[in-house]
Design a protein around this nucleic acid. Structure first.
Lengths: 290, 290
DNA sequence: AATAGGGGATGCCGTAACGTGAAGATCGAG
DNA sequence: CTCGATCTTCACGTTACGGCATCCCCTATT
């Protein structure tokens, strides 16, 4: 029979922890003095406590440990819990390795360019309706005119029935002279199918599919779009993703008039996860006594 | 100028999160209506928010992110933070790999033996004083007599001036017929150097060094000690530790009289960490589009 | 006019696993 | 008798928010 202080010294755990485990019913003293409330432990309880500590060391939550040490649990269930925990740990290892790679690519960027631009964010973009028109443009310059004619073609101007102006880039190559683009605005209200406008354009509605997007918002305006493309490209490569479809340009803030450089654009690249199987047996360990 | 709801939809973060970041001063709206308290955000703030989200994705704490995005921070400091975070992540990966190995060894144990015994706990044992005597015993049986004579040699009996009865095993081989053992009791009071007792034993005090111990408390008594040895052995192997000195047996609860099987013993093996260098470049990735 | 709804705001509770006090009771020792 | 050690309970701090309740204001509808 040890007091909590003696027992905590023997077991090398804090008194606070013993009281806490008593409180949550995980590990309780064999006797509690009803007058003083003092807790008394026995040396024969140490194996039970050590089991708890060993399981905690494995990363199991206290709640799982509680279920683990219940007597009425079968070996299969224990095995299942361990397998589950192992899978969790392996997933965490993969996630952390991904973060390490991302950090490395940022560090490389600092070394190579003396600065860093890598605020790529992955988000789920929901299904959205787009009213617009698709066209193959011969040069990049004619795109600007087309852009404005699409904007002006939409009745109601800048009000809230429409969402952001959006361009879908239907060809991955941005270097070629011709571009297959789809321009339009997001909207969510009615579902009018087609719409001919006075300046000769026929707009159609289409569903943009839900997608996992790697997004990047280049620092304000100018020729930063190319920077954005390269940033996402490097990022996707560093993180072992793959492109999965046409990119989108979303104008979060429209320029006031043609030629205006004051706008905010979000570049979105749909990506697909690549399954990464980590072969733990391939890890190199170099053991050297310290 | 977007309201918090619109902005949260655009940025794909919750309103709650925006209010929280405002509250802690990490990311604030460009304007707050003083009358209603309504927050208003601008699209040009999105790059800043995305930077925060990207850094969060790397696992940086909000506090570090706050320091990260301060303007007056140099590239070297940023580099330093990234390197530090990378080191932390690598350490976590190592820890998790260790846990995975431990779980695997438990699973293997279940498969091989249909049960599991692996409540090995690592603890730091502080420097302690031992009063006792060292002797080479020819057989294991004679140990029991010697054990009791040492106990009886100490004046004061079972009171609190002495700590646990302890045996130091000075030879790693437990299989050999002869055993080089040191028996005595821990104590902490005075530092009397030598002590001759009436039954002819001369006890000496000695400092047991501080050590990192893998400890195991076999389920109560009987021939469980051997089980304990093998459990620790397997555990040490599975976790890439190495033995580093003589093992100790600590009697947390003494048997009442010779031959009594009712005692609690803790087996302690000093271990040393082996430095494990993880070579991340050796990881195999198999990329397969999902 | 009364009401229902749809934002917006504030603020409190809960999370996991404890650490770290504070305030008060009890005990033995000098 | 007082000091120190030990015990108790209570309660707050940690991280990064999610969820709920409550209140306010504006608009649309019955």
């Amino acid at each position: 029979m040890y007091s909590i202080g003696e027992f905590s010294r023997i077991a090398q755990v804090s008194k606070r922890l013993l009281r806490y485990y008593d409180e949550i019913g995980l590990f309780q003293p064999i006797k509690v003095d009803s007058a003083s409330g003092h807790r008394y432990y026995s040396a024969s309880q140490l194996p039970a406590l050590n089991r708890i500590l060993a399981l905690k060391e494995l990363g199991l939550s206290l709640d799982r440990i509680r279920r683990f040490i219940k007597d009425d649990i079968s070996l299969e269930e224990i095995q299942g819990m361990l397998l589950m925990k192992k899978a969790e740990l392996e997933q965490e290892v993969l996630d952390e390795l991904k973060r390490i790679r991302t950090i490395e690519s940022r560090l490389k960027q600092i070394k190579d360019r003396g600065t860093y631009v890598r605020d790529v964010v992955v988000k789920q973009v929901p299904q959205q309706k787009l009213i617009g028109i698709r066209k193959v443009l011969p040069t990049a310059e004619s795109g600007d005119n087309f852009f404005w004619s699409v904007i002006n073609a939409l009745p109601g101007g800048n009000n809230s029935t429409y969402g952001a102006m959006t361009i879908v880039l239907h060809e991955d190559g941005i270097s070629s002279d011709r571009a297959d683009v789809e321009m339009g605005r997001l909207f969510h209200k009615t579902d009018c199918a087609h719409l001919s406008t006075d300046n000769g354009l026929t707009l159609a509605t289409r569903l943009l599919p839900e997608a996992t997007m790697a997004t990047f918002i280049p620092p304000t305006s100018s020729c930063a779009k190319l920077l954005g493309y390269s940033a996402i490209g490097e990022w996707v490569e560093a993180n072992h993703y793959a492109f999965a479809g046409p990119a989108r340009l979303v104008f979060l803030e429209l320029p006031e008039h043609p030629g205006d450089e004051d706008f905010v654009i979000e570049i979105q690249f749909p990506i697909c996860q690549q399954t990464v199987d980590l072969d733990l047996r391939s890890l190199n360990y170099t053991n050297s006594s310290k």
